[in-house]
Every structure is written in C-alpha cells, then in structure tokens.
Design a protein around this nucleic acid. Structure first.
Lengths: 190, 190, 190, 190
DNA sequence: ACGTAACCGAGACGGTACGTCTAGTCTTTCA
DNA sequence: TGAAAGACTAGACGTACCGTCTCGGTTACGT
C-alpha cells in the first residue's frame, strides 16, 4: 500500500482530516443529498482537485468518514449476559437512542442513500452498527448455549432486526417505547 | 377542496398524465437520481412551468406516480388459504419476483431515496407494499382464527417482514431461494 | 371608430385608466426596460388579456400614456417675446428643469427607447416636447420678423437643438449652467 | 490591476474573442434587444458561465465590443483641408454613409439603447463617433487658424452636431441629401 | 545540490439542471 | 360578449455544481 521510493511531497494529512471533518459536519447538518464537493472544499479550505485526487466520489468521502469513525462514532456491540433477548433489547435500544439523539436526526437515512451508491459505505454501516460480525457472534454463542435453535436462519434474523430499524427510520415514524422489546420478543425465543 | 365557481381554463388532464408517465418511465429506466424535471418536461412535451405549477419537487412527482399506481403497479394482496405461513411465503415470493424482474431492478432503491426526501412518498410506499392495508387484514384474520397469538405486535411484525426485504434489496445481495420461507418460519408460528 | 350597434358590454374605461396609470407609474419609477405587461396587469388588477386586447405592445401603452398626458405632463410652448434667443433659452431651460426634476430622472431615456420601437411614441415625443409644431411656429414667426434668415434650414435647426438635449441626457452627463445659453448663441443669430 | 503571480489557468483569450465576435454579429444582425446571453454562448461555443464570469450584463458585452472596435469599426477622423465647413460636411457624410449602409441599419439605435443601460457604452459611443477625440482636435486647429471664434462652446457644438445625427436616426427619418451641408452651414461660420 | 515527480491552492472551462420570470395565446366562467 | 382568472408553450434568465484541466509554487526523494 505504502508507495516506497516515490518522489515528491507526502500527502498532506491536515488537508485529509479537514476534508473528512467538513464532510462529516455537512452530512450531519444537512444530510447526504446536500453534500457537495465544492462545499466541502470551501469548508476545508482545500482545492477541489485535492478532493478529486484522493476520492473518486461523494460517497467515497462518506465511506472514509465512517471508516475513520467521524460518523456513527459509537460501535454497537451486543453484550453477552447470558440472556439473549435482554442483550438484543439493550443493543436495539442503544442504537435507537443514538439515532434519535439531536445531532443524528436523518443520519441513518443519509447513510442508507450513500450505501446504495457505494458498497463500501454499506459494509462500514453494517460493521459499525455491529450487525453482521458482532451480532452474528452473539447468535452463534446463543446457539451453543441452547438459547437459540440450531437451525435458526441467522441471515434472515439479522435482516429482520436491521430491516425493522431501517424501515421505521425511513418512514420517519420514530421509535415508540416498546419497539425494541416487542421486536425481540417477536424474533427470539424466551 | 374542489374550487367552486373558479374562472379560467381547467387543468389539462392529458398533460398531467403525460408528465406522470414520463416520470415513471424515467424512474424505471435510470433510477430516481437520474430523474430531472427538464427531462420529464421534454418527454412529456410540456413546458417546465407546467410541472412546477402543480408539483413542488421531483419527489412529489414520484409520490403521485405511486398514488396513481404507475409505479409498483402490481398490488400484492396475500391470500387467505387458512395457512398463514404459506400465505405469507407466497406473498413474499411474489414481491421478490416483482423486485427481481428485469424492468424493476433498482426500483425499490429509487423509491427509498425519494422517500427520504418526501414523506408522502414514504407513506405511499408503505401503503403500496401492502403492509398495512393488506397484510394487516390477513394478520387480523389469523388472530381471529387462532393462527397467531392475540398479543402479537403487528406493527413490529410488519416492519420486520418488510424491513428484511428492504435491507436485502438495498444491500444488492439478491434473494436466495430459501429467503421467503426462512423469514416466514422465523417470524410466524406454525 | 365607434362601433355602432354592437352588443355586449362596453369597454371598461376604469380598466383602461388603471392600465395607463400603472404603465406611467412603472415607467417613471423604474424606466421603460423594467416595464412588463405582467407587472402592469398586476398593478392595474386587470388580466393580461385585457391589455393584449387593446394594445399590441408595450410601447403602444407608453404611446397612449403620452397621448393622454400621463407622461411628460407639461407641454413646452416657446413664448414669443420678440427676442428669439431669449425665448429659446427659456424654452430649453424649462425642458432641462423638467428632465432634471427628481421624479423624471431617466424619463427621456425611457421614452427614447420606446420611440425607437414605436413611431407613435416618437411622434408624441416630438409633439410634446414642442419641437416640431410649436418650435416650428416660433421659427416661422422669427423669419417673418427678420430675426432669422429666411433660408435657415429649420429641420436641421430643430434637430440640432433637440439632439443636443438628447445626447447630453443619454450620456448621463447632466446639464451645466451655461448649456442652454451656449447652445442658443451657437445656433441662433443675435 | 494586473494580477502578478496568480496561480491557476489564464483566462482563455480565444473564448473572449469568440464571445465578443458573437456579440457583435448578433447586434449587427438583429439589434440589441434580440441579443441574448444564451445565443452568444451558443454562437461562441462557450458555456454561459464563462460569459457571466467576465461580464456582468448584456450591455457590458456591447461596451467591450465597442472598446475592441468590433462595432463601429470605422473610425471617422475629420481631415484638415483648411476649410472647416467642408471638412465637417465630409465627416458628417462619412458617418451618414456608414449608418445608412446595409449592414449597419439600426446599429446606432441598438447602441443608444445599450448606452442607456450602461455608462461605459455611452462613453465608448461618444469616443468612437469621434466627437471628442477627433473632432475636438479639428476644432482646436480651426480656432488656431481663425476659422472658428475662440469663444465657441465646443461641447455644445459637438452635442449639436452629434445630436442632430442621433435624433434623425432615432426618428427613422433617414438623411436627405442636404442634411450634412445644411447642418454645417447652420453651425459653422464660412 | 540538483532535478524531477507529486502535492497543493486557485480557479477557468464546458456542461447540465436548477427554479424563476415574462411573453403571448388560449380557455373557461361570470356578469 | 367583455373582462377576470389563469393554464399553457416557449425560452431566457442568472445560479449552483459537476468533473476536468492548467497554472505557479512547494516539498522531498533520488541520483
């Protein structure tokens, strides 16, 4: 990855940071569709070319913001208290609390749109929400502990959990109090 | 609503239809982000002003296309064969088949993006995908027939079913063969 | 002109007046190039069609305003005191004073532009500024009184007088104190 | 004024020329009021933004065309044959000939309209028509040669000459044969 | 130490689409 | 049937960004 023996100045790290910060700020404030390269360049006091040199697209900027934890700063890892349902409920409530907090309104929606344009964004989104790897691990552990039938279709289970979150958020309906609990009861055995 | 006794010419219905048809065609062909007012106006052989007179935004056009059933043309009503699981599986497979058919690739993604911009689109989308009107009835019937516990949280059930579809589609992962069946087994009692 | 025996309502004189008043007001305030049919219609609370029905063009409106003395309200007739030069100087100063008064800044320019589009405006402009008919009479009287050589080319004399006013105004240079006097001395014998 | 050491690409001179040529051509062909930025951009094969970047308005384009001698190409310098009247008559006839030639019909009117919108156009127009620079010199020479009284108000003389031309042209009356001669006789001593 | 390759800012450029405005024409309803 | 209200096509307006490009200046490695 690191180009050895190349001439010329090193990549300006300050510029890179400034660009990602400007990107994050704009996504958080106005959403992904209001994100413009020119705006980021202006905010970061950087020339457009410096952005285009390193990122191929708007969505790539967002992907790197995710990778750098400048968006979705929290990493949601389900605990393993022994009680699967309780753990999943807590995990859901954490995410719901994060998405509902003042600074993050519309963030998931923005990221979903970016994710439709860019697979990397989708990957990071899944990772950060702890969806596939972390939740998967928790489920495997649950199967081993006989809290979950061995033939549970884990992919579908994950999609249903995540999907319920997503469609609620997309609909703009907000999350009522019992949502996490009801969903967990519905999908997981006691 | 109906303005009584107003002077002046009536709204040109042909123009309205042509605009919505052009909108639908462009969304289906190139997706929502390639949809431009100028393009629609050109296709519909109408002046831009006629579009701006009646619709405030790009997304409002799409919302009306949905309302007029020019997008998501097929309406999926689950049957009531007495076997809830089987009915839901068939319903899921219908939708999957529709979403996967050549003309509709990316359609859901487009509509979801439009839905993030416009609450009406979101509403129509929820309605159209049959969740509330159609699946709701089926679930109520199932409760009455003791195929579903009376305390099942129907909203969460619907979100989980629909959401699983949505995230799969968004992820671009495609639907494998067992998806509908696995999902139904996961969410519904035998 | 008057259509005899025709049925239906008569032309609405109030509308006509309102249209001309709106036209005059707009020309005086913002100049001829800011004059729009839509603006006049809005000001006069009249439909566009009512304007188009009776006037073929923007400039025709201005022409009628001139004819109705709603623009260039003062009529400049040179006196005949026996002293031609003095009379012309007074006449020039009257016009200069009028053109320079607060409400009329740019008016001549506006009317000149309208005149290039519409012969009627040109005619009215000439009439109203007293040029041809009124100044012509004064010159004829001067010839008879031996204050002006009989072979003076009156058309050129008038053009030179009027033209000097016009180019000064167009240039936006303003009229200095001696202008009227100098011009009269230059063009007329003592 | 000249930006020293500025970075970035230089202004494209070819584009500038093409824009001014397109402007000139359109003014000559269809007059100033038919001049549109979009038309110029299309003719010059240049984007609209390139025009708006460098010129604030339609009239500024015309002003620069005048400054670049792409309009009113011929520069009328009065000769000095020793006979002031004869020189002025020839000068007037040259201008009349130019204004009356097929390609230039309406040109003066166009420029006058532009001049009412833009002081620079007015200035260039005065300059170009030779009044101040060129005719002024001829008059000074005439005063030195005792062909013109030393106290002749040159500004008014110029305005009268130029103004007579202008109002004739604006009136659309055309120039009859004796015009130049009569005017010169009227304004200048033998 | 010098050359040179790459970085960076600034910003011009051809484009596309935006949403607005006005021109004229045409249609409908009221009085 | 005149006038109002206003829908309609047409097309220019001036703005915002796009992604590419060209400069001039500046590192900092490699010979």
């Amino acid at each position: 990855m690191t180009e050895v023996g190349r001439r010329g100045p090193k990549r300006n790290e300050q510029a890179r940071i400034a660009i990602l910060q400007a990107t994050s700020a704009r996504v958080l404030e106005n959403g992904y569709d209001q994100l413009t390269i020119e705006g980021v360049a202006a905010d970061a006091r950087v020339s457009k070319q410096t952005i285009y040199r390193w990122w191929p697209s708007r969505s790539a900027l967002v992907a790197e913001c995710l990778a750098e934890r400048m968006l979705l700063t929290e990493f949601f890892v389900p605990e393993d208290s022994g009680d699967l349902r309780a753990d999943v409920i807590r995990w859901l409530e954490n995410i719901i609390g994060f998405l509902g907090s003042p600074g993050n309104s519309g963030l998931l929606r923005s990221l979903l749109i970016a994710a439709t344009e860019n697979t990397e964004v989708a990957t990071h989104l899944n990772e950060r929400l702890g969806m596939w790897e972390m939740l998967g691990e928790r489920f495997t552990a649950a199967i081993e502990a006989d809290q979950l039938p061995a033939d549970t279709p884990l992919a579908e289970l994950g999609d249903a959990l995540m999907g319920a979150l997503v469609v609620r958020d997309l609909r703009g309906a907000g999350f009522d109090n019992g949502f996490a609990k009801n969903l967990a009861i519905l999908l997981l055995p006691a």
